[in-house]
């Protein structure tokens, strides 16, 4: 019979600490006599070390808010699907109530409450930003088509801000129903997958401008403003200062 050799299974089991003490001793004795096997063991160990070196860093990255959100609210925990339905329902209900709400909007806005369209922007953010498979209707790879299509539907020339300088890239966009007609939503995300949405609607008044206004709806923070023929609202689940930084970048891009 041939001299017993170290098998591949021995090498891996040894490396992964799967062997009981007597077995370890047996493998070690064989390795001492088999330099080829010892070299292979070293190479396998290197493979494992490289993998850890490459991916262990993920453990220290901040966890995107959208992942924490799944596990943090009681409602979502038990009924994620129901909650999404509820969000859609709330949105539809808002549409139905818009006429009624609009009645009081002017005075309410003066008291600092967000207008209906900003609420709609926040609800649209809540509905679409957690979406995994269909976050947008048209992706960033078809940006020219996206801007042409939505400009046509909204009846105003839209521009899509490039937010790379503040760490966000375009995911894409979709058409939404606004109070009086079509509205648009552009979605962005950062390297951690944190998503922001920019909601655009058309105004009746052509030459109005407002400062940034801030509103908060649950976890969603919104900066909204009016810029000539467009109303814009930037929604996200990031803190107010960060969101303002992005809103400022959006404003600057659209008003060079």
């Amino acid at each position: 019979m041939n001299k017993p050799r170290v098998t591949e299974a021995d090498l891996h089991s040894y490396l992964d600490g799967e062997l009981p003490a007597p077995e370890r001793a047996r493998v070690e004795a064989l390795l001492a006599d088999d330099s080829d096997a010892e070299q292979r063991l070293g190479e396998y160990r290197q493979v494992v070390d490289l993998l850890r070196e490459r991916y262990d860093g993920v453990l220290d990255e901040p966890v995107p808010q959208r992942l924490i959100a799944v596990t943090s609210t009681a409602k979502r925990r038990a009924f994620p699907v129901l909650l999404r339905c509820a969000a859609v329902f709330a949105w539809v209900a808002l549409g139905g109530l818009a006429g009624w709400h609009l009645h009081g909007v002017q005075t309410r806005e003066d008291r600092g409450a967000a207008p209906v369209w900003a609420h709609r922007a926040a609800v649209a953010h809540i509905v679409y930003s957690p979406e995994v498979r269909h976050p947008v209707e048209v992706g960033a790879d078809q940006e020219a088509h996206l801007v042409a299509w939505l400009s046509k539907r909204l009846g105003t020339q839209l521009r899509i801000p490039q937010l790379g300088a503040v760490g966000y890239s375009l995911v894409g966009g979709r058409l939404l129903p606004g109070e009086r007609g079509p509205a648009a939503q552009f979605m962005y995300q950062d390297a951690q997958g944190q998503r922001l949405t920019l909601y655009v609607r058309t105004n009746r008044e052509q030459n109005k401008e407002t400062a940034f206004r801030f509103a908060q709806d649950g976890n969603v923070r919104i900066f909204y403003w009016v810029d000539r023929s467009q109303g814009l609202a930037l929604s996200g689940e990031i803190d107010k200062e960060q969101l303002l930084r992005v809103a400022t970048a959006v404003y600057q891009q659209l008003n060079p």
Partner: peptide, 22 residues
């Protein structure tokens, strides 16, 4: 929540792509 970083590490290595992993 404590296990999310480990799920992310595994998913990142499995898919090779950050947003697909998340």
């Amino acid at each position: 929540q404590e296990l999310i970083p480990r799920l992310r590490r595994y998913a990142r290595a499995l898919t090779g792509e950050r947003s697909a992993a998340d």
